[in-house]
Design a protein around this nucleic acid. Sequence first.
DNA 1: AACTTTGTAAAGTTTAAATTGCACAGATTA
DNA 2: TAATCTGTGCAATTTAAACTTTACAAAGTT
Lengths: 195, 195
Amino acid sequence: MESLSNDRLLEELQSAEDQITDRIADNMETFGVSSTVGRLLGIIYMNREAMTLDSLAEETGMSKTRMSQVMRQMLALNIAEKEFVKGSRKEHYNVESDYAQTFISLFTTNWKDVVSRNMTLERRLRERVDQMSHSVTDATPTEIVERIETLSNELDAWQAYYNWIDRLVDFFESGKIFDHVPIHGNQKEDNHHEK
Amino acid sequence: MESLSNDRLLEELQSAEDQITDRIADNMETFGVSSTVGRLLGIIYMNREAMTLDSLAEETGMSKTRMSQVMRQMLALNIAEKEFVKGSRKEHYNVESDYAQTFISLFTTNWKDVVSRNMTLERRLRERVDQMSHSVTDATPTEIVERIETLSNELDAWQAYYNWIDRLVDFFESGKIFDHVPIHGNQKEDNHHEK
DNA sequence: AACTTTGTAAAGTTTAAATTGCACAGATTA
DNA sequence: TAATCTGTGCAATTTAAACTTTACAAAGTT
């Protein structure tokens, strides 16, 4: 194996760190968010210190406005927070340094949102189905009666599903998931590197 | 409460069913896929019978080409399958009718992908870090040595994380999740409708 | 009070994703 | 063999998302 000069080492380090950031950005799309969210997450994470909009803009080569937009989104997603730095009047942003916690934040924030929107719709539809049911008379065609029945059953399934998601979110948020899928579990695959 | 005519009932039914489909489409974005994927999922699901590209195109008002593209994507995501229908030479597509199963399919398919991509990168980076480590001599600046050390630790964290996700996927795929978060669990919230 | 600094709103531009139209291959029927 | 049907590759177009520029309000400084 060839030995590397110091300059080459620095290049290699930078390149490796960038690749990690890139991959974090990529993976973020699995959560349905823009890759820039992931890129900022990666940059701040690898920086290991809170960063300002200006430093982020410099690092990414993007406009400060965009940084502001993305950071706001990240605050809403609960994967970043403002951090007070005395002596500076710029806002500093930091991210959770634990990968799994970030996963959980994203997962729970996203799905809580979904659950809430769906519960609302479910309630409204339930009312309308009830009204339909009350409008059924002996003269109502069987086909219609059946469709109302089907729709009502659908709402039951719907509700059961979102209730399940709700409990699932809880399972993650409370940390119970770690009781059954611990962070340092048995490796599923062989792993060739020495510790 | 006002009673509804049959025509009005049919309108109401259609409107309610459409809203359900729309919401399914919306929610699908949480998985990071196009809402058209969700729309087709909803349409086929509500149809309760396998559908052809032509019927989907008619239902959505979109081109058959697009239907073909989306169905292919859905097959890849494991949330739809071809179903043979004798007498017809068109291909018929059906979807899983169980919401939770669909959730699990999407979740596991997406994350398996991510895990695999990351494990690959991790292996490659590990090799490079090893080479860097071997290039360190007494003359190497402390700063560089430390960065290499940090990077190596980072890869450990990285690996632990993706290994966790891997086991998490397993936890869902094997159905163990249902032992701890059952489909019909205790309702977390009050629920005003009579069964 | 005039001058900076900082963050973001609003509108405009660019880039990427979704969608279409056309064309054609393979399979089927006449 | 010609004629039809079905699904899809490919290039072109449309639409939506990402991103920038400009402008300005709020708070801080001189």
